[in-house]
Simulated assay, not measured.
Amino acid sequence: MQVKPIKTAEDNRTALARIEQLWDAEPNTPEGDELEVLATLVEAFEEANYPIDIPDPIEAIRFRMEQQGLEDKDLLPFLGTRSRVTEILKRQRRLTLNMIRKLNEGLKIPLDCLVKDYQLVK
């Protein structure tokens, strides 16, 4: 096993190619250990160089709706009236603390997404 730090995008591509070769390695074998170390190095490199920003609240709500096959009317228990649902989804109204709590508890949308600031459309 010859493992080295991942410093460049080329190093990352090489490590990913090796991971693909090792993908079916058994745990607690030299190949399995190499796979584990490479996966850790790639994860650290990609988190540092290709960060993924959390979505804003409306993107998070729409994503969850798509995941669960929900329609606007399914948000009534969390947001209130039909007009309020429309205003929220069109970014014309902000989420209240109560709405954020209900969306987090009911739809399991992470709080860090729901409390992120976003632009209103006037």
Rank of each mutant, 00 (worst) to 15 (best):
Q2L: 07
P5C: 00
K7V: 07
T8S: 15
A9R: 11
A9N: 13
E10F: 07
L16C: 15
L16E: 15
L16R: 15
A17H: 11
I19Q: 14
L22F: 04
D24Y: 12
A25T: 06
T29M: 13
E31V: 05
G32E: 14
G32Y: 14
D33T: 12
D33L: 08
E36L: 14
E36F: 15
V37C: 03
V37N: 03
A39C: 12
L41A: 09
L41W: 02
A44R: 12
F45T: 00
E46S: 11
E46D: 11
A48L: 14
A48D: 12
N49P: 07
N49V: 05
N49G: 12
I52F: 03
I54E: 15
P55R: 10
P55Q: 11
D56T: 01
D56V: 00
D56G: 02
I58V: 04
E59L: 02
E59Q: 05
A60F: 04
A60M: 01
A60P: 07
I61R: 00
F63E: 02
F63I: 08
R64V: 06
M65F: 03
M65C: 01
E66A: 12
G69T: 06
G69C: 10
G69E: 11
L70H: 00
L70S: 01
E71T: 14
D72E: 11
D72K: 02
K73C: 04
D74F: 02
D74W: 00
L75P: 01
L76K: 12
P77Y: 02
F78T: 02
G80M: 08
R82K: 09
S83P: 13
S83D: 06
V85D: 00
T86D: 04
E87W: 05
I88P: 12
I88C: 11
I88Y: 13
L89W: 09
Q92I: 02
L95K: 04
L97W: 06
M99K: 00
M99G: 00
I100R: 15
L103P: 02
N104E: 14
N104V: 06
E105N: 03
G106T: 12
G106M: 13
K108G: 01
K108T: 06
K108I: 00
I109P: 01
L111F: 08
L111A: 07
D112S: 08
D117C: 07
Y118H: 09
L120W: 07
V121S: 05
K122T: 07
K122D: 06
